[in-house]
């Protein structure tokens, strides 16, 4: 592990540092943040000051504290959603590659249908049906992102299922879960990890977009996407405060992609 970190290029280290800071503040938000998440501490739109380093928002809540709590909500939910779509999508993808035949056909066509509808429209439609709540949002986004994960893991697994060691395992009478978990998964792991990083960013941006549209994370919960919306009027007055949550989103996205790039580089065997 130590040598792994040592071999990381500066870009990946930067990414990891940013990720670590976000994770730390997210996890320990109540201890790090100067004020509460929904606590009204003064007038609306106060300028930056010693008491409120980033000023206050449209309801007079401390901007910095909301940023910190927002990290927890936005990043946490994105992580959860991505994890769900990956466990479902990659399992189905590997299964389709291994079994082939009608199972592969049915799953692949279902996924095609899912991918035929633009994700944002599909999400708006599904959320309109089930109602906007956090569990519903997580479920809907997870379902939407199962599709690309399924396609990727199926394609990656296709390259593995034809190899002799999988045949050897079949000849040994191994059951499907073993074949998926022990023979195939370790060999497509690096591809999946890399994809996880990218998907995580997409999901993260998606949640922010839904929140911005008002059907994502509901007020008064702090969230980077809706924070941009709530304070958008300030932009007309030349104040950059509303852009800070947006910048945080961008920074985290870049950080994760730097780490992913490094992982992809390692996985492709270009170590030295």
């Amino acid at each position: 592990m130590k040598s792994l970190l040592k071999s990381a290029p500066p870009s990946a280290i930067f990414g990891m540092v940013v990720l670590a800071i976000v994770a730390f503040t997210g996890i320990f938000a109540p201890f790090v943040a100067p004020y509460g998440e929904t606590q009204v501490v003064g007038d609306a739109y106060l300028p930056w000051s010693a008491a409120h380093p980033l000023g206050t928002d449209n309801l007079g809540r401390d901007m910095l504290s909301r940023m910190i709590f927002g990290a927890r909500n936005t990043v946490g939910l994105a992580l959860l959603t991505t994890a769900i779509s990956f466990s479902v999508g990659s399992t189905l993808g590997m299964l389709a590659a291994l079994k082939g035949g009608w199972l592969d056909e049915v799953l692949s066509r279902l996924v095609d249908v899912l991918m035929a509808v633009p994700p944002l429209i599909l999400a708006l439609m599904l959320l309109a049906i089930v109602g906007p709540s956090i569990p519903n949002m997580v479920g809907v986004i997870a379902v939407i992102y199962v599709a690309p994960v399924y396609r990727l893991s199926r394609a990656a697994a296709m390259n593995v299922v034809g190899l002799d060691f999988v045949e050897a395992a079949k000849l040994r009478g191994e059951r499907t879960p073993w074949l998926l978990r022990r023979e195939i998964l370790p060999n497509i792991w690096s591809t999946l990890i890399a994809e996880f990083g990218v998907r995580f960013c997409f999901v993260f941006l998606f949640i922010a977009a839904l929140s911005f549209l008002g059907i994502g994370i509901q007020p008064p919960t702090a969230d980077w996407g809706s924070m941009v919306k709530e304070n958008a009027t300030l932009i007309s007055f030349g104040d950059i405060t509303p852009l800070i949550p947006a910048a945080a989103i961008a920074l985290l996205t870049v950080a994760i992609n730097l780490i992913v790039d490094w992982m992809l580089h390692r996985a492709s065997g270009l170590k030295s």
Binding site: D164, F165, N187
Partner: peptide, 22 residues
């Protein structure tokens, strides 16, 4: 299981017949 046990196979390419991750 007895039949599975009794018939074994050795492959041409040792590179693809052993799981590289194990």
């Amino acid at each position: 299981p007895a039949t599975l046990r009794n018939i074994q196979m050795i492959y041409q390419s040792a590179d693809t017949s052993l799981n590289p991750r194990h």
